[in-house]
Amino acid sequence: EKTLKIVADSEEEAEALAKELAEKYNLEVTIERNPEEEGKYVITIKIKP
């Protein structure tokens, strides 16, 4: 299993990107607040072998 993390500037941007990735590529995608940067969100994508 591989994990890729993407940082987005807004929750709306994160949700839109996560939804597109999940639907288009059938990936497991989660969104959470970035504890290191206020106002940023981390999109985590898990790629199963």
Rank of each mutant, 00 (worst) to 15 (best):
E1H: 14
E1G: 14
E1D: 10
E1C: 15
E1T: 13
E1V: 14
E1A: 13
E1Q: 14
E1L: 13
E1P: 14
E1S: 14
K2E: 12
K2N: 13
K2C: 13
K2G: 11
K2V: 15
K2Q: 13
K2A: 14
K2I: 14
K2W: 08
T3S: 06
T3Q: 05
T3Y: 12
T3W: 13
T3A: 05
T3P: 07
T3H: 06
T3N: 04
T3L: 12
T3K: 06
T3D: 05
L4K: 03
L4R: 04
L4E: 03
L4I: 11
L4H: 07
L4M: 10
L4T: 04
L4N: 03
L4Y: 15
L4V: 08
L4F: 15
L4Q: 04
K5A: 05
K5E: 06
K5F: 15
K5W: 15
K5H: 11
K5T: 15
K5G: 02
K5S: 09
K5Y: 15
K5N: 05
I6H: 03
I6A: 02
I6K: 02
I6S: 01
I6Q: 02
I6L: 07
I6V: 05
I6P: 00
V7N: 12
V7M: 11
V7D: 08
V7L: 10
V7K: 13
V7G: 08
V7P: 12
V7E: 11
V7A: 08
V7Y: 15
V7H: 15
V7W: 13
A8C: 15
A8L: 13
A8D: 00
A8V: 15
A8P: 00
A8W: 02
A8G: 02
A8Y: 03
A8Q: 02
A8N: 01
A8T: 09
D9C: 10
D9Y: 14
D9F: 12
D9Q: 08
D9N: 13
D9A: 07
D9P: 03
D9H: 11
S10C: 04
S10Y: 02
S10V: 01
S10Q: 01
S10E: 01
S10T: 11
S10F: 02
S10L: 02
S10I: 01
S10D: 03
E11R: 14
E11A: 11
E11G: 04
E11M: 13
E11L: 14
E11H: 10
E11P: 07
E12H: 06
E12D: 07
E12S: 07
E12R: 07
E12V: 08
E13L: 10
E13S: 07
E13F: 06
A14C: 03
A14Q: 00
A14M: 03
A14H: 00
A14E: 00
A14V: 02
A14W: 02
A14R: 00
A14T: 01
E15A: 14
E15C: 13
E15L: 15
E15R: 15
E15Q: 13
E15W: 15
E15H: 12
A16D: 03
A16N: 08
A16G: 05
A16F: 09
A16P: 00
A16Y: 10
A16Q: 08
A16V: 07
L17P: 00
L17I: 13
L17T: 03
L17M: 11
L17G: 00
L17Y: 09
L17V: 06
L17A: 03
L17F: 10
L17Q: 03
A18T: 03
A18M: 07
A18W: 05
A18G: 05
A18K: 06
A18V: 09
A18P: 00
A18L: 07
K19D: 02
K19M: 06
K19W: 08
K19R: 11
K19E: 03
K19F: 07
K19C: 06
K19N: 06
E20V: 14
E20K: 15
E20H: 13
E20P: 02
E20F: 15
E20G: 07
E20T: 14
E20W: 15
E20Y: 15
L21I: 10
L21D: 00
L21M: 09
L21A: 02
L21P: 00
L21Q: 01
L21Y: 12
L21G: 00
L21S: 00
L21N: 01
L21C: 04
A22S: 10
A22Q: 13
A22M: 13
A22E: 04
A22Y: 11
A22C: 07
A22R: 15
A22G: 07
A22W: 14
A22D: 02
A22L: 08
E23Q: 15
E23P: 01
E23K: 15
E23W: 14
E23M: 14
E23R: 15
E23C: 15
E23L: 15
K24T: 06
K24S: 04
K24W: 05
K24G: 03
K24L: 11
K24D: 03
K24I: 08
K24V: 08
Y25L: 02
Y25K: 01
Y25P: 02
Y25M: 02
Y25T: 02
Y25R: 01
Y25D: 02
Y25F: 05
N26L: 05
N26Q: 11
N26Y: 05
N26P: 02
N26F: 06
N26R: 10
N26K: 14
N26A: 08
N26S: 10
N26E: 03
N26G: 11
N26D: 05
N26I: 02
N26C: 10
L27S: 10
L27P: 00
L27I: 07
L27A: 12
L27T: 11
L27R: 05
L27C: 09
L27H: 05
L27G: 14
L27D: 02
L27W: 10
L27N: 04
L27Y: 13
L27V: 07
E28Q: 11
E28G: 03
E28Y: 08
E28D: 09
E28V: 13
E28A: 08
E28T: 12
E28K: 09
E28F: 10
V29N: 01
V29R: 00
V29K: 00
V29A: 07
V29H: 02
V29M: 03
V29G: 02
V29P: 05
V29T: 05
T30V: 10
T30P: 01
T30K: 07
T30H: 08
T30C: 07
T30M: 08
T30S: 10
T30G: 03
T30I: 09
T30Y: 13
I31D: 00
I31R: 01
I31K: 01
I31Y: 12
I31T: 02
I31S: 01
I31P: 00
I31M: 04
I31E: 00
I31Q: 01
I31A: 01
I31C: 04
I31H: 01
E32S: 11
E32C: 10
E32A: 09
E32M: 14
E32H: 10
E32F: 12
E32K: 05
E32G: 05
E32D: 09
E32W: 12
R33H: 07
R33M: 08
R33G: 04
R33T: 08
R33E: 10
R33Q: 11
R33Y: 07
R33I: 10
R33K: 13
R33C: 05
R33A: 13
N34R: 07
N34T: 06
N34A: 09
N34P: 07
N34K: 06
N34E: 07
N34Q: 07
N34Y: 13
P35C: 08
P35H: 08
P35E: 09
P35G: 09
P35W: 10
P35F: 11
P35K: 10
P35Y: 11
P35R: 07
P35A: 09
E36Q: 10
E36S: 12
E36G: 14
E36W: 12
E36A: 09
E36P: 04
E36D: 15
E36V: 09
E36C: 12
E37H: 12
E37K: 09
E37T: 09
E37D: 10
E37Y: 12
E37R: 08
E37Q: 10
E37L: 12
E37W: 12
E37I: 12
E37C: 13
E37A: 11
E37N: 09
E38S: 11
E38Q: 12
E38K: 12
E38I: 09
E38T: 13
E38C: 14
E38L: 11
E38Y: 14
G39H: 06
G39Y: 05
G39Q: 04
G39K: 04
G39N: 06
G39L: 03
G39V: 02
G39S: 06
G39C: 09
G39T: 05
G39I: 02
K40E: 04
K40P: 03
K40R: 09
K40G: 08
K40T: 11
K40V: 07
K40L: 04
K40Y: 04
K40Q: 09
Y41A: 01
Y41W: 15
Y41C: 03
Y41S: 01
Y41V: 04
Y41L: 03
Y41F: 11
Y41N: 01
Y41E: 00
V42L: 08
V42H: 03
V42C: 04
V42G: 01
V42I: 13
V42Q: 03
V42W: 15
V42A: 02
V42M: 07
I43M: 03
I43W: 02
I43K: 00
I43R: 00
I43A: 01
I43E: 00
I43T: 00
I43D: 00
I43Y: 02
I43Q: 00
T44C: 08
T44R: 05
T44S: 05
T44Q: 04
T44M: 08
T44N: 04
T44F: 14
T44W: 12
T44D: 01
I45K: 00
I45S: 01
I45L: 13
I45D: 00
I45N: 01
I45M: 07
I45V: 11
I45Q: 01
K46I: 12
K46Y: 15
K46R: 10
K46M: 10
K46A: 06
K46S: 08
K46V: 10
K46G: 03
K46Q: 08
K46L: 13
I47E: 04
I47M: 09
I47H: 04
I47R: 05
I47W: 15
I47A: 05
I47Y: 14
I47V: 09
I47L: 14
K48V: 09
K48R: 13
K48E: 05
K48N: 11
K48I: 10
K48L: 11
K48G: 09
K48H: 10
P49E: 07
P49K: 09
P49T: 11
P49R: 12
P49A: 12
P49F: 15
P49D: 09
P49H: 13
P49I: 12
P49L: 14
P49C: 15
P49M: 10
